[in-house]
Design a protein around this nucleic acid. Structure first.
Length: 151
DNA sequence: GCCAACGTTGGC
DNA sequence: GCCAACGTTGGC
């Protein structure tokens, strides 16, 4: 069963255009347990709404898909990197990532402000739970967002 | 740059 | 196990 997710990234760090260029990328650096657990639930082929956070304006920028299921995030083992976790070891990983593949960039950014006004989206964690960078999206919510994006 | 929300850490 | 301090996220 293909499911749907929303994943946040700061475009200054990694944007939908970066993914379009790379085609596929590991989604590393997630250091929140709830977000990690959602990534562990992901299956190859799951659909991903690519959300630009901490941007002006923030919003959903496009569509991607999970191309590799969860595996240990290597950045947790690198003391020199910004995502190092001293409690993690290769035989005891704590953090996981998935790989995502570019599908398409929307013709226009669906801004947070616009999405907030859509009744069908009112229950999204995006509005109800702050700072959750990976979150599930229902079939109805997903349809509503794709309808706004057009084809 | 500010700051509210909120998850994590660590002293007790 | 409580909870204050602290750090991060992310909208504005």
């Amino acid at each position: 069963m293909v499911r749907r997710w929303l994943m946040k990234s700061e475009p200054e760090v990694f944007s939908i255009d970066d993914l379009a260029r790379l085609k596929t990328s590991g989604w590393d650096g997630v250091r929140n347990y709830q977000a990690r657990n959602y990534m562990k639930d992901m299956r190859v082929g799951d659909e991903v709404l690519f959300y630009h956070s901490n941007a002006a304006p923030p919003g959903v920028a496009g569509l991607a898909e999970v191309s590799r299921a969860a595996y240990p995030d290597p950045t947790q083992f690198d003391p020199a990197g910004g995502h190092h976790d001293p409690k993690a070891a290769p035989e005891r990983p704590i953090w996981y990532q998935v790989d995502v593949r570019f599908r398409r960039k929307f013709a226009r950014l669906l801004t947070l402000d616009e999405l907030r006004g859509v009744a069908a989206l009112a229950d999204m964690p995006l509005f109800r739970r702050s700072r959750l960078s990976v979150q599930p999206v229902t079939a109805e919510q997903f349809r509503a967002i794709l309808a706004l994006a057009g084809r």
